[in-house]
């Protein structure tokens, strides 16, 4: 005779009819447990990356999946293939998913007018345009063709200080553009 589903799924019944008489294991498993699987298996893609914190350069695997209908990083963990790190991460590296997904991240341009007491919003394209204007105006106002009779062809009117998480390619373009504009106060955390 066919037993009804509720009965055969009732752990008490499974306790009485199976090997797990004390109800501490097989008989009492829940649907959540039966369906457990690493969420990384559901990732849409996995890319190889490098930890953005210290200079050891630990390998990372970045898993991207759908969260609330949008693509998001669902896990970052060590890359076991890396001869540098062998898949291991420190607390900062282990927190790097949160670095990417935390709620304190800014994703909008903010603008503070001179003498203003608060931020206002600004369109990214407008901001870029305004910044380009500032650079050119400052450069024009502060251009030095020579110092003590020696040609220098530069501006000391604006400066740049980069962080140590800038990529090589980013530093290359920063140095290239600023130098071509005649700026020389191009600095980096590397001196700090």
């Amino acid at each position: 005779m066919e037993r009804p589903g509720w009965l055969v799924n009732w752990p008490v019944y499974r306790q009485l009819t199976g090997a797990d008489r004390l109800g501490r294991g097989f008989a009492v498993r829940s649907p959540h447990t039966e369906h457990a699987a690493p969420r990384t298996e559901a990732a849409a893609r996995v890319v190889s990356s490098v930890c953005p914190y210290c200079a050891v350069g630990c390998g990372q695997k970045v898993y991207v999946g759908m969260v609330g209908g949008r693509e998001a990083v669902t896990q970052i963990e060590g890359d076991p293939d890396s001869p540098v790190s062998r898949g291991r991460l420190c607390p900062k590296g282990a927190a790097s998913k949160q670095l990417v997904t935390h709620s304190g991240r800014q994703d909008k341009v903010l603008y503070r007018r001179p003498f203003a007491a608060s931020w206002e919003s600004l369109d990214l394209a407008t901001a870029m345009d305004m910044i380009a204007d500032r650079v050119l105006a400052t450069r024009a106002a502060t251009w030095e063709e020579s110092v003590d009779g020696k040609r220098v062809a530069r501006t000391l009117g604006f400066a740049s200080l980069g962080g140590a998480t800038l990529d090589n390619e980013e530093n290359y373009l920063i140095n290239k553009l600023w130098t071509a504009l005649g700026a020389i106060q191009i600095e980096n955390q590397a001196r700090i």
Binding site: E77, L89, P91, G93, A94, A95, K97, Q98
Partner: peptide, 8 residues
């Protein structure tokens, strides 16, 4: 790192 990796 264990604490953080676990929580993440």
């Amino acid at each position: 790192a264990c604490e953080v990796a676990c929580k993440e």
